[in-house]
Amino acid sequence: MIVYCAAAACAIGVVLVASRLVRRWKGVDDPDPDGPTTAHTGAMLSALFLLAFAIAVVVPWTTADAARSNTYAESQAISEAYWAAGRLPPPDARHVQAGLGSYVALVRGPEWRLMERGRLSPRGQEQLDGLRRDVIAVKADTDELKDARAAVLDHFTAISAARAQRAMDARTTPPQGLLAVTVLTGLAVVLLPFLSGARPRGASLVPLSLMAALLAAGTYLTVDISHVFSGALAVRPDAFTGLQAELQRIAGGG
């Protein structure tokens, strides 16, 4: 942040030095609100706001889409592990399948609420690690059981990889500097007529007020969608809600 402030201060210094130099050379005073300086500044501020606004919207939107796809990949890996666990000896199969059902309930409930604050429950990883150790400990006396155990472990690897990606998605937000630039350029665009010396009155305040309202709504949108698991673009636990019903169907022999 210090570097950004220093860069801004240097830019202001360049403007002040340039204004002094121009006074010594040939130049025309430009005090009018609709003069070339204000026109140039307004166009650049509008362009900067649109650029920052576009990035602040596109980045979270893309991240949310990727995070949503990852939740379905994780739920699919859990479903495949549940199916594969059925090939283990009956006591081990029931234990692993019950553990997977408990893991899904944890993710869909308490862990999802934690993800809104950017973190995952440590209990989820503990459950996965415990189930993985239990599968490794399964006695495999035949090639068929060895293959079944290996298949379950492969699916657990996929679940862990998807979980790690979900943890990263929960912590991902746009750079704070980007949101700050969006807010500041939006304010500058709204206040530019007043800063340039114009005094809007009567009907001219209507379009200015409308623009200010829309800019404020757009700026708030960039803040509201900045987190993947909360706000307007929040990823919901739909994949795990559907998975719970699927696991119940599989357990019932459907």
Rank of each mutant, 00 (worst) to 15 (best):
T63V: 13
T63K: 02
T63W: 13
A64V: 10
A64Y: 02
D65S: 08
D65F: 03
A66Q: 12
A66G: 05
A66Y: 04
R68M: 14
R68S: 15
R68A: 15
N70C: 12
N70A: 09
N70Y: 06
T71D: 15
Y72F: 13
Y72L: 12
Y72E: 15
A73V: 07
E74D: 14
E74G: 12
S75Y: 03
Q76D: 15
A77L: 07
I78Y: 03
I78L: 13
I78E: 13
S79R: 09
E80T: 05
E80F: 03
E80K: 02
E80W: 02
E80P: 00
A81Q: 11
A81C: 08
A81P: 03
A81N: 08
Y82F: 15
Y82T: 07
W83L: 14
W83D: 12
W83R: 06
W83I: 13
W83N: 09
A84H: 05
A84N: 11
A85D: 12
G86N: 11
G86A: 13
G86M: 10
G86F: 07
R87Q: 12
L88I: 02
L88M: 04
P89D: 15
P91W: 05
D92E: 14
A93P: 06
H95D: 14
V96R: 02
V96H: 05
V96K: 01
Q97C: 10
Q97E: 09
A98G: 08
A98C: 03
G99L: 03
L100K: 01
L100H: 03
L100P: 05
G101V: 08
S102M: 03
S102A: 13
S102E: 14
S102T: 08
Y103I: 09
Y103C: 03
Y103L: 11
Y103Q: 04
V104L: 08
V104M: 07
V104H: 06
A105E: 13
L106T: 05
V107D: 14
V107G: 10
V107E: 15
V107W: 08
G109C: 07
P110A: 14
P110Y: 07
P110D: 14
E111H: 01
E111W: 01
W112T: 04
W112D: 14
W112F: 11
R113H: 14
R113L: 14
R113G: 12
L114R: 09
M115V: 04
M115Q: 11
E116M: 05
E116Y: 01
E116N: 01
E116I: 00
R117W: 12
R117F: 14
G118K: 09
G118E: 15
L120D: 15
S121I: 00
S121F: 03
P122M: 11
P122V: 10
P122H: 10
P122C: 11
P122R: 04
R123K: 06
Q125E: 15
E126A: 12
E126Q: 11
E126K: 01
E126I: 00
Q127T: 02
Q127L: 11
L128Y: 02
G130W: 02
G130C: 02
G130T: 02
G130R: 01
L131V: 01
L131F: 06
L131A: 02
R132V: 10
R132K: 08
R133L: 13
R133Y: 09
R133W: 10
D134Q: 07
